[in-house]
Amino acid sequence: MTIIARSTEPVLQRPATLTEALALSGPGSVWWAGGTDLWLMIDRKGLRPEALIDLTHIAELRAIQTTGAETTLGAALTLAELEASPLPAVADTVRSMCTVQTRTLATLGGNLCHAAPSADLAPVLLALGAEVSIAGPAGTRRIPLDGFFTGPGRTVLSAEEILTAVHVPTPQRQTAAYTRIARTVVDIALVGAAASLTLDEECHVLDARVALCAVAPVPLLVPGIAEALKGRAYDGLDFAGCAKMAEEACAPITDLRASADYRRRMAGVLTRRALTTAADHLRRMPCA
């Protein structure tokens, strides 16, 4: 571990293990997980942390592990590293995010813990049914990602806790897709929607999820999608009902980027498109 200390400004501390990181945590300390959002909060928004603890050199936060049933992504993996993720929907999503330069620094954990309502990785991971591991002074816990976000910039994490990994179930016969609306090729999503479809052995829908970003204070899992599609043959599904459910689940705001009305409508359009793309992917998948 290296500590760089030169003045009264908070120094960037660089723990090598999770245990060291947790031990460094103190009043006013913040976790640094790439810093591309955090730095702008310091530089522009007047955030004045007492200490910065860099999590990006902790090997256990930087691993990708695939077991039979799930893929675990370390929270300190950079977006650039996730471009090669074994989860195609995640890799596709990452390539649509920010700039190639920012992707070198920004991390999975940073994107989720910054908890921007427009965070692109949130809907795709919600749609994939991800869970997250959290380490803290009292030990570790694992919770569904649905419920992790509590408001703009807020999560269930306490100041001493670290998001360590994201677990993505990888069932057979599942596909997912993320679609977003942006002004130019580099932009915050005006609206984003991700969908996943899982089939049973008879090619009927076993499970389905739709999640949205930039349409509510938190990234949103649309309720009722699985119930609406379950048991249906995947070919020729009509997603109009799901689009309506997405529109109803929204609580968007109007800002410089888009109006609430537009966002709500687009939640429906993108829901239909994400589900259609996921269904198209299924068509290319042999059904047992």
Binding site: R183, T184, V185, V186, D187, I188, L256, R257
Partner: peptide, 29 residues
């Protein structure tokens, strides 16, 4: 397609004073 300064309705201050929300075309656009 995109470029437009937004002025604050009361102070007239420019609200999108950077490339984050003043969108200009990039090479893939």
């Amino acid at each position: 397609l995109h470029e437009e300064l937004h002025f604050h309705p009361e102070t007239g201050a420019v609200m999108n004073d950077g490339f984050l929300d003043y969108k200009v075309l990039r090479s893939a656009d």
